[in-house]
């Protein structure tokens, strides 16, 4: 489990996160949602350590990463996998090379063992026959799946995803969502997904945190979201006529 307490973050005097506290549970898909510019990415990058908040605590199963020494942070990061918005695959490496990379950096295993593990991870994300291709030679959806395979290569306890569906078509987004949900349950990971994709929210949101203008506005599940009385959240989630109809349907069905 990851717990954050009283996180504040600002850039050159402009505050973007205000006293945010939240809990992210193990074996669940924890979603951080909010409009563009609400502070979601800053929050995720602060939790993962790519940005340093001005104050607060970030507890990884009780271990406060804010007071860790460099060696401890390095050890912690071996327990973290991250899926970036643009996949962030290494251009100079093949698909297989990208997935093997963390293994060869952090394990003493032979190349054959690393390759076997990398192939297993690629198989787990349903990617076949692309091992020798470079990232530029595969589709955006495939790139995301390679990035997921790379993120889970070291069996992380914590998985962070920054807008995993951005730039993908709805069908591929669904595949990625299902994949993230499946591996979270399968490997009992604490998964934090930063998204503004409403399909993801209603599809896989087991613990949802709504951020608005740097403040935590609401916490709940995808089932609770249909009956919530937070106007800002309702405006955000059910912004389109289609989603408004979905909400009416869900309310009528008592879901």
């Amino acid at each position: 489990m990851i717990e954050i307490k009283h996180i504040n973050k600002s850039f050159e005097g402009k505050q973007v996160l205000y006293d945010i506290s939240a809990q992210f549970y193990e074996g669940k898909t924890n979603l951080i949602i909010g409009q563009s510019g609400s502070g979601k990415t800053v929050l995720v990058k602060s939790i993962v350590g790519l940005m340093r908040p001005e104050s607060g605590e970030i507890l990884y199963d009780g271990r406060n990463s804010m007071v860790m020494k460099t060696s401890q942070i390095k050890a912690l990061r071996k327990e973290i996998g991250m899926l970036f918005q643009g996949s962030a695959l290494f251009d100079s490496e093949t698909v297989l090379g990208n997935v093997i990379f963390p293994l060869k950096m952090y394990t003493r295993d032979s190349y054959a063992t690393c390759k076997k593990r990398a192939e297993f991870c690629l198989d787990r994300v349903n990617l076949h026959g692309v091992n020798d291709l470079y990232p530029s030679e595969i589709s955006g959806g495939m790139q995301k799946r390679v990035a997921i395979a790379r993120a889970i290569a070291l069996n992380p306890k914590y998985l962070f995803c920054d807008e995993p569906n951005s730039g993908l078509d709805p069908k591929t987004s669904l595949v990625i969502d299902e994949l993230l949900s499946d591996i979270t349950h399968e490997y009992k990971m604490t998964t934090i997904i930063n998204t503004h994709d409403m399909n993801s929210v209603l599809g896989i949101g087991e613990n949802i945190i709504f951020i608005r203008k740097g403040h935590k506005e609401w916490v709940g599940t995808r089932d609770e979201i249909t009956t919530c009385d937070n106007v800002a959240l309702e405006d955000f989630v059910f912004a389109t006529p289609l989603f408004k109809e979905v909400k009416h349907y869900l309310v009528e069905q008592g879901k």
Binding site: I73, K74, R77, I80, M82, F84, L89, Y106
Partner: peptide
């Protein structure tokens, strides 16, 4: 974000 990806890997 390839540099961030390296940093995340420790």
């Amino acid at each position: 974000e390839q540099i961030d990806a390296l940093e995340i890997m420790g």
